[in-house]
Design a protein around this nucleic acid. Sequence first.
DNA 1: AGTCCAATTGAAATTAAATCTCAATTTCAG
DNA 2: CTGAAATTGAGATTTAATTTCAATTGGACT
Lengths: 140, 140
Amino acid sequence: MHNKIFQNFLGRKGLKMTRERFAVLEEVFSAPSHFDPEQLYARIRASALKASRASVYRTLSLLVESGLVEKVSRSGRGNIYEHTYGRRHHDHMICDVCGEIIEFYSENLENLQLDICGSNNFEGMSHTLEIRGHCENCRD
Amino acid sequence: MHNKIFQNFLGRKGLKMTRERFAVLEEVFSAPSHFDPEQLYARIRASALKASRASVYRTLSLLVESGLVEKVSRSGRGNIYEHTYGRRHHDHMICDVCGEIIEFYSENLENLQLDICGSNNFEGMSHTLEIRGHCENCRD
DNA sequence: AGTCCAATTGAAATTAAATCTCAATTTCAG
DNA sequence: CTGAAATTGAGATTTAATTTCAATTGGACT
Ligand SMILES: [Mn+2]
Ligand SMILES: [Mn+2]
Ligand SMILES: [Zn+2]
Ligand SMILES: [Zn+2]
């Protein structure tokens, strides 16, 4: 599982599995799927396996590079991440009122983007589609 | 034109048209359509009509509220804006290598998003679609 | 043209996210 | 075990943006 995947990734890069990296890894995968780094750091400080803020940010970058985590969005000031192990790509709707995040996936929409890239000779490698508005509960 | 529109907007809100706000307005509409606030501030400092950094940021917020300017991207560190007066909504492809920004618009893609909002009972009010990758010139 | 007062300004301090520095510590291949 | 290379954390630094507040200004109303 993600533990072994991260180990392999580190191995390939000549990096070491440390107790701090393990702490971040565990916390990322027990966190709600969307999280921000400062929340994550607070959770880690409260847990048994500690890591400094610097290590949290450094490990987060490695997790993104390994493909286990993705940067999802910037809500206001900081970034939002989510763990993606065993999950399919998807995009997000975000409620401006209550902050709820709704995930969606559309094959058509993905294909349309491929077409658009094609007709611009652009080699698309990733994308973020974020729809903002009012969720079911928050619309009048 | 944008001058009058901004005046009206300010009037409606009981705000005043000051020389600083005018300076920002002029610079925003003589700038390349995509810009970041610090660039804008630098340009204003170099121009005849000065304004402080605080006023630049404050006026930028008002311009966004007035609909003359939109926040375009949140992917790097700071925000990117563009003036939208007389321009149609569109989305962006951004080259990871050279930073080029390619604009595109697809009716199908917009409609697909409407459908998706509909089937989630979500009242979509705005969206950003940002495709990152390599542009024509930067792909091998 | 003058009065007045709420709106506005700018310099500097502050906040917040994220990154950097570097001496001390840890990991792990051999 | 050993030792070289990787890693860590406390605190300093960077960067974008916001806040503070005394001094200034816009413009409605005479
Ligand atoms: Mn998600
Ligand atoms: Mn644009
Ligand atoms: Zn909501
Ligand atoms: Zn390019």
